[in-house]
């Protein structure tokens, strides 16, 4: 038979044990896992500058769907084909107009967000989509079976499927970027070939869109290593409030947007 004293001790001990994990978990909330690699690539787009650029271009050309220099450079650099039918036309980088109910309108570029927790890599049947240690999310087209599950999983609509052979929609080919085939999924790679080449040669990498933006004189897009506290992008992220798309999903996208001031 259990004595009263023993019973009380047991009750007290179990109550204390029940409290313990609560306190530990309360402390641990908020400590986010950080990518500890030497490099973690990311991009910032300045909404004000992008909107200004797009307004000028639309006014100049009269074309509501004009492609700005960044998109043109991306298409050319990465052999992104151009097809008449918008439904099946692959587009790695594209411009969208955001508008709210108060009539505010602005233009931003959309591209693969190179998420810290990429849903596309999570669902990929064959690990064809994978995240490199430097954060770049890539598709291995030799492994891709073309099931398009990643397109369903991607919260940012960043992926395109090759319904047609991309070569049919290309006028010129950049030999530095591998040509994809029909029946696989493709998307922005942060110009991984340029990144690797620059690192090998000890230079600062610059994707094609960022280069085009700089040469056009807008300097809206900034690319860099967020794990280097002295990089340009780290300074921007430290000093300003930035927007991520759909942050509530926990994907931690690494394309940031500087809001209008």
């Amino acid at each position: 038979m259990i004595s009263r004293r023993r019973f009380l001790v047991l009750v007290g001990a179990s109550a204390a044990m029940a409290m313990l994990p609560l306190q530990i978990s309360a402390k641990s909330i908020g400590s986010e896992a950080k990518n500890e690699a030497k490099r973690r690539w990311a991009m910032v787009a300045d909404i004000e500058k992008c909107t200004e650029c797009m307004r000028e271009l639309i006014k100049k050309t009269g074309n509501e769907e004009v492609k700005p220099p960044c998109v043109v450079a991306c298409d050319r650099e990465n052999n992104v084909p151009e097809f008449e039918e918008k439904e099946i036309d692959p587009q790695w980088m594209r411009i969208v107009k955001f508008k709210n109910k108060f009539g505010e309108e602005f233009y931003v570029p959309l591209l693969c967000n190179h998420c810290e927790n990429p849903p596309c890599a999570q669902v990929c049947l064959t690990q064809a989509t994978f995240k490199r240690s430097d954060g770049i999310v890539e598709v291995d087209m030799h492994r891709c079976i073309g099931c398009r599950y990643c397109m369903i999983a991607c919260p940012y609509g960043s992926r395109s499927y090759n319904f047609k052979d991309p070569r049919e929609g290309l006028r010129e080919v950049n030999p530095k970027v591998p040509m994809r085939t029909k029946g696989v999924v493709e998307k922005c790679t942060f110009c991984v070939h340029r990144v690797d080449e620059a690192i090998a040669n000890g230079r600062e990498p610059e994707p094609a869109c960022v280069e085009a933006c700089r040469k056009y004189g807008k300097n809206s897009l900034v690319f860099g290593n967020v794990n280097d506290p002295n990089s340009g992008i780290s300074r921007i992220l430290k000093e300003s409030i930035v927007i991520q798309l759909r942050p509530e999903l926990g994907t931690d996208p690494h394309v940031y947007y500087l809001p209008k001031r």
């Binding site: 509501e64 769907e65 004009v66 492609k67 998109v71 918008k86 036309d89 587009q91 594209r94 411009i95 969208v96 107009k97 955001f98 508008k99 709210n100 109910k101 233009y107 959309l110 940012y156 609509g157 927007i243 798309l245 759909r246």
Partner: peptide, 12 residues
């Protein structure tokens, strides 16, 4: 993509 904002894509 961004709470409170409608999207209109120019290229897709």
């Amino acid at each position: 993509y961004l709470p409170g904002y409608e999207i209109e894509s120019l290229h897709t």
